[in-house]
């Protein structure tokens, strides 16, 4: 067979893989980083799930992670508060620093780290406890409040900031599991901000919610971004465009492109990002 034809066939077959750049396209570095990841690799057993990712997370900004499912968005997100430590087979290389201190250094304690880097999960997961106890859980285990009045204040202001106070103020002692899905997710957000984290990680926080509850959470994210640094994984490009200032596009464990959200969606520099946002695959 003609070698030229062979080459074309080969190129087509390897298109997705061949075109992933070794270097990320766009600005991985920012002026005022809250967290910095340098050459991070993550393995599940022998399988590499994150491949040499370098990325800065800017202070008091929302950054969204997008990409086809299974590309490692959640995995990378969970590295930022060491939630991957709870998975036995998960191993991480490289450095992730917060305020210049490597959070994977041997002397770092994960308990205060996770209080500083809070997390909201894909499916609302309130504890089977009262609404009050759900929000008070974090302050209690970290000894944040010294007396009941202080704890009451924390609970109220957290629910307030999560936009839930008016809906639940008369039923604080009822189980959190009795709320609607969207309310449960806002309860989980209140629970997270009750320990005053600096960074909040959200893994597809709206994927289990209806459009109205989703809109409510998106508003909330916008409000919270004045106070917190927020990292959100989303499978919805519209959501990424609406809530985030920066966007990072992952593919097969690599960080392909990162930049201002507007730039990424209007003028993607990498062909694969372009394909993804125009819906050609993923």
């Amino acid at each position: 067979m003609d070698t030229q034809v062979m080459n074309i066939i080969e190129q087509t077959a390897n298109l997705e893989h061949a075109n992933i750049p070794d270097e990320t396209v766009g600005d991985v570095y920012v002026d005022r980083p809250r967290m910095t990841a340098r050459n991070v690799n993550v393995f599940y057993g022998d399988k590499k799930a994150i491949d040499n990712v370098t990325l800065d997370i800017a202070e008091k900004q929302v950054i969204s992670f997008i990409g086809p499912s299974g590309c490692g968005k959640s995995t990378f997100l969970r590295c930022l508060n060491r939630m991957n430590d709870t998975i036995d087979i998960c191993r991480i290389e490289g450095e992730i620093a917060m305020d210049g201190k490597n959070i994977y250094a041997p002397d770092v304690d994960v308990v205060p780290l996770r209080a500083r880097v809070g997390m909201v999960f894909q499916k609302p997961n309130p504890f089977p406890k009262s609404i009050y106890d759900n929000v008070a859980y974090g302050p209690r285990i970290h000894g944040i409040a010294t007396n009941r009045a202080e704890l009451d204040d924390i609970v109220e202001s957290s629910l307030e900031r999560a936009g839930l106070w008016n809906e639940v103020k008369d039923r604080l002692l009822q189980p959190g599991t009795g709320l609607s899905g969207g309310q449960q997710q806002r309860l989980c957000i209140a629970r997270t901000i009750a320990v005053s984290p600096e960074v909040i990680l959200m893994d597809e926080p709206c994927s289990a919610l209806d459009p109205i509850a989703t809109a409510r959470i998106e508003e909330l994210i916008a409000e919270l971004s004045s106070e917190f640094t927020i990292v959100i994984v989303t499978h919805s490009m519209q959501q990424a465009a609406r809530v985030s200032q920066r966007t990072a596009y992952f593919h097969l464990g690599k960080l392909v492109e990162v930049g201002d959200t507007e730039m990424v969606f209007t003028k993607p520099q990498h062909e694969m990002t372009n394909n993804y946002i125009t819906g050609r695959f993923g």
């Binding site: 308990v111 209080a115 859980y137 974090g138 970290h142």
Partner: peptide, 25 residues
């Protein structure tokens, strides 16, 4: 597992997770 994740995500230790979340549930 989601309940454990929630507890760990808030900075609970293992025994706190067991005592305050897993056992009550």
């Amino acid at each position: 597992q989601a309940l454990r994740d929630a507890a760990y995500g808030l900075g609970s230790t293992r025994s706190e997770t067991v005592r305050q979340v897993v056992l009550p549930a």
